[in-house]
Design a protein around this nucleic acid. Structure first.
Lengths: 96, 96
DNA sequence: TACTAGAGTAACCGAATGGTGACATTTGGT
DNA sequence: ACCAAATGTCACCATTCGGTTACTCTAGTA
């Protein structure tokens, strides 16, 4: 599932928690945070800190993967993961 | 690439930014944040807020995917994405 | 050598965080 | 209807955030 917003994240966490038969207190304790924080994150709080988010996801047995977005208009090098010489040259053009 | 810690995230962001030929100021401006914040995140700040992180990743043309972790010892239902009846029953046992 | 771009660091500050503990509401079972 | 568990909300508070501005240091260029 693609995560684009904090709301996406919150929905996923809640769904996953319920599937595992945990309540908010269980998850909070296992993830080393507070129930209040779980509530807020499940509601899509955009300013929650990533450290706690990562710990929470780990607790839920979930992995976060990052990848070059194919739906984005990107250069060939961009997708390959190599340095994009065109982008760099373009940036250089901005010099006075 | 799997993201397990804030340091992972920071390393990825920096690598990606450089590949695209951007400097910290460029990225900060395009992502709607400050250069200071970019510096901190690239250094692995664990308390950066997810909202900004998501915006930054979007700016970098990157997508975040979430998935049930196969390396984790998980029940069959857990992997399938269905409700895990065993976990729920286990939780019920805790009732006094 | 002198200059510049880029990266890292520091101080300042208003604003928001996350934890605690309590209370209110909703839900499900007896 | 009653009760208990789970969820949602609130006030309080020490801590930290993120933005701004300015300074340093390094590497590469003229």
């Amino acid at each position: 599932m693609k995560i684009r917003t904090a709301a996406d994240l919150g929905a996923f966490i809640k769904e996953r928690r319920v599937k595992l038969g945990m309540d908010q207190s269980d998850l909070a304790e296992k993830a080393g945070t507070s129930r209040k924080w779980i509530v807020e994150v499940e509601q899509g709080k955009p300013r929650a800190e990533i450290g706690l988010v990562l710990r929470t996801l780990k607790t839920l047995g979930v992995s976060l993967d990052i990848a070059i977005d194919r739906t984005q208009k990107a250069s060939a090098a961009s997708e390959s993961g190599n340095v994009d010489i065109n982008n760099i040259l373009n940036a250089l053009k901005k010099r006075p």
